[in-house]
Amino acid sequence: MGVMAELRKRWFVSMLSIAAAIFFTVALIVSANTYVNVMDANASVVLMNAIEGAEMLDNGSILVTIQIQLDNPSDLDLSISTVSWTVAIWNYTDGVNIIPVTSAYNGTGDGLTVKKKSVETFTYQVIVSDSTRLANIDGFINYSMTQGQDYTLETVPYVHDFRVTGWIADYPHDYQTYRETYLNDMARIDLSYRDGEYL
């Protein structure tokens, strides 16, 4: 008896097998499509249009700001995990001497989500009024003056370091073993903007 005759004779098992084959084919196509979307999100999500600012206030403090956009052109939402921003002055005269100016951090509890095909703007503003920090900055300005650089509190080369991490569509990402950590990396975005460069 040929296979087709056997299939007709045993139609119930044949139908079940065909239904299962269709189900798994659809599941494979859907999963592969998700994989493409995740890869697309990994490649296309970027930080852009950073605007840095430093403004001197009447009371002698400085208002340090950054505005930066996170562009998500992919078909998946992003769950933002952490956003951090630090501002410092890098003094290279004797090794690397980092003069901290300010910093800010937002963690997972904030529940920030960047919707698919949208642009999210992050704005941080901090007034630096701590006398020790201002004295350190003044010290850098004075030292720079001896080296022929004429800076003010507004024109000091502040190095802004902005970093955002998150998870693509919140896919499971708590794999702990060495052989599985690639799954965390696949669903993760980790973007930085440092000293004028997008990393």
Partner: peptide
């Protein structure tokens, strides 16, 4: 033989893919 093989091949394909990417495949 080939026809019968086609019944089971998609399940094997999906399970293998799912084994590599269990976090993004559905159902997993």
């Amino acid at each position: 033989m080939f026809t019968v093989a086609l019944f089971s091949a998609p399940a094997i394909a999906f399970m293998t893919f799912d084994f590599v990417f269990p976090n993004i495949s559905s159902p997993s």
